[in-house]
Each structure stands twice: as structure tokens, then as C-alpha cells.
Amino acid sequence: MKYLSLLPAAALLLGSCSKNEEAVEVSSPKETVNISLFSWPGYAFWFVAKEKNLVPELDLNIVIIEDPYESFAQMAAGKLDVTSSTVEYGPIAADQGVPVKLVAFTNPSYGTDKIILGPGIESAADLKGKEVAVLEGGLTQIYMGIWLENNGVKFDEVKYTNVIMDDAVAAMVSGSVAAGEFWEPFGGKVLETLPGSKVAATSKDPYFKKTALLADGMYMSGSFLEERPEVAKLTMKAYFEGVKYWKEHPEEANEIMAKALGFPVEDVVTVIGADGSSTDGGIYPFNWTESGQFMGVLDGDPPFGSNNEITRHWELTNEWWIKFDQVKKEHPMESGVDLAPMKALKADGYGG
């Protein structure tokens, strides 16, 4: 095949080829987008979008980085464009001046997150002065703090032990912590291996479900948003096309995700469900409309909260990060949230 990419388009239209030659249509090169996520099925819709080439204009270069703070640092350095992570980072980024913005809510937790009490612990009151396992600076710490205060214990009357999930399971089983916050499949491991352990709260409880405190989101770097707005819009479209494909072909999509993550399909199903309904797993994957409603860009209410719930979520997390001394002051939502890609998709008439 003859490649004519150096010839002006006008020359092609005027018949630069001979009468007997068939003109060659030149396709535009794909835009490369560098995306990171850590090993979690709730983020793996990106792999479906890539595998099925759902937005042909894009080349999705997806890497797994287990430490979300490393992803945010790489975004600030211009090495990554997008990352999927939990949604509490916005106020921290604003406080530290990190050029990263939350652009969409993607997966409210729907039971996968649990507060589990060890043997002999019957209530929040029994935890006073004891150690609890959380990820400090993460949603699990806020979840534990709110649960304690909702049950009559001040958030600072316990000691927070900062451990990753594998280590948290070991800490619970060994008895070095009295309670902890776990998501699946780690919570199930604790309950299976530690006799006398029990679930005290889940993210499906009414307060946590309505506030969508525990959730995943999509972040984009400031430079990506400013310098490549059209690509940013298409990248968001790719993610929600991945969700749409999963809803229509859940068995195939779950297998794609499992292979990409190195997970058993059963673990993927435990987290996101088997039938594409969003209600039979441990998280509730938002489709385009539901995310747009949560972010206040589309009309109507999202499944559990109210339209523009992001505003209340931002205020809640900012308030708790001040309590935990992770941020110094209140920040306006616009300092950590950018709705431009979502508004641009809406303007295009995208329906997801």
C-alpha cells in the first residue's frame, strides 16, 4: 500500500493518483493516553474499552501501579494522563497544590467495604484505647472515624494503625489490632479465618450508601485537561463505553478484566457482579447518566443520593481531612474537581 500522509488533502481530492490508481484514504494516528490503576476490578473497565477498541481514536496505554500516590506523583510530573483511584484525594491535592483533578465518580461501594470487629469486641465502645487497622490518608480512615462517632466514640479515642490490606488481614488474625476496615476479597478472608470476628457496618448501610463516601473515581492531570481537552473528553467516553459494554456482555467483559488483572473471574464477580445490573456485586458501577447526575452535570438523581451529590461529598471529605490533619483548611470544590470533560461529552449529545 502507498502511504500518502505527506501529501495535502486537497491534492488527494483533486486526483493526484492516476486514473487507474485507487486513491488511498489516510487515517489519522491514534492519540495515546497513559492511564494507571491498581489491581481492583472496579477500575478494570478501562481494559474492556481497550480490548474492544470502543473509542478507535484512542490508544489506551494502561499500566498497573499499586500505590495511588505514586500515580498522582507521575501525573504531576506529566508521565501519566489519567488514573482511577478512590475519591478522597481531591481535597488533599488542592491543599498540596498537586495539579490533579477528579473528573467523574465511577463506582460507589455497595457492600464490599466492611468494618470488622475482632473476637471479644461487641461494639464501638469496646474499641476505646485500642488499635484499628486502616489506610491512613485514605477513605477507610474516614469511614472508621464516622462509624465510631455515629456509635458514640470520638474518632480520636482509638489508635489508627496504617497497613495495606494483606497486612491488615494478618494483623486482625494475629490479634495485634482489635478491628479494621476491609474490602473484598480481604474482608471475607478475615471472617473465614478468624473465629469470633463479625461485621459491624458495611458500605450498603443507608448513611454510607446515600453519601457514597466510599467510592472510586477518575482523575486527570492538569496538563492533560488544559492541553488536550478533546482527548480528555474521548478518554472519559472510552471509560463509560467500557461500562456500557460490560452491562451488555457481562460474562465476556468479566473475563477480559480477570485476565488483565490476573484475578480469578470469581473475584471479579464478587466485586462488580455477574449480570451487568450493578446491584449484584460489592460496588455499584455507575453508567454515564448516573455519574453525570452525581456530578451535577446531567438532570435527575443518581441511584442513592441527590443530584450534584459531589458537592456534599467534597465538603464531607474536606471536613474529615481537617480532623485527621491531612489538610489545613477548607477548599472550594472547583480547586479539586473539573467538570469540563463531562460537560463536553454532554454537549456532544453522548448518551452512554
Rank of each mutant, 00 (worst) to 15 (best):
M1E: 13
Y3K: 14
L6R: 13
A10D: 13
L12M: 09
L13E: 15
L14C: 01
L14T: 14
K19S: 14
N20L: 15
E21G: 10
V26E: 12
V26G: 02
E31T: 08
T32C: 11
T32S: 14
S36D: 13
L37P: 00
F38C: 10
A44D: 13
A44W: 06
F47N: 15
K50E: 15
K52G: 00
N53C: 06
L54F: 11
P56L: 05
E57R: 01
D59G: 04
I65E: 13
I65A: 02
Y69I: 10
F72V: 07
M75Q: 12
A76G: 15
G78I: 07
K79A: 10
K79G: 12
V82D: 01
S84Q: 13
Y89D: 01
I92S: 10
A94G: 10
D95Y: 04
G97F: 04
V98P: 05
K101L: 03
L102W: 06
E122H: 12
S123T: 11
G129A: 03
K130W: 08
E131D: 15
V132N: 02
V132P: 03
E136F: 07
G137F: 04
L139K: 08
G145T: 12
W147D: 08
L148M: 01
N150E: 15
V153M: 07
F155T: 05
V158G: 05
Y160H: 05
M165I: 06
D166T: 08
G175A: 04
A179K: 05
F182L: 07
P185H: 04
E192Y: 08
E192A: 11
T193W: 10
P195S: 06
K198F: 02
V199D: 07
A200I: 01
A201H: 12
T202K: 00
T202Q: 03
S203T: 14
S203L: 09
K204E: 12
P206F: 11
F208M: 10
T211D: 06
L213N: 06
L213S: 13
D216E: 14
G217W: 06
G217T: 04
Y219M: 04
M220S: 04
G222Q: 09
L234C: 08
L234P: 13
T235L: 03
A238E: 06
Y239H: 10
G242P: 15
G242V: 03
V243R: 09
K244A: 14
K244P: 02
Y245P: 10
Y245R: 03
W246H: 12
W246G: 05
A253P: 00
N254I: 01
A260M: 02
A260S: 11
I272R: 07
S277E: 00
S278Q: 09
D280R: 00
G281R: 05
I283N: 01
E290G: 11
E290H: 05
M295S: 06
D299W: 03
P302S: 01
G305R: 05
I310E: 10
L316S: 05
N318D: 15
W320R: 04
K323Y: 05
K329I: 01
K329G: 12
M333Y: 11
E334S: 15
V337L: 08
V337C: 03
L339V: 10
K343G: 02
L345M: 06
A347K: 14
Y350V: 14
Y350K: 06
G351C: 09
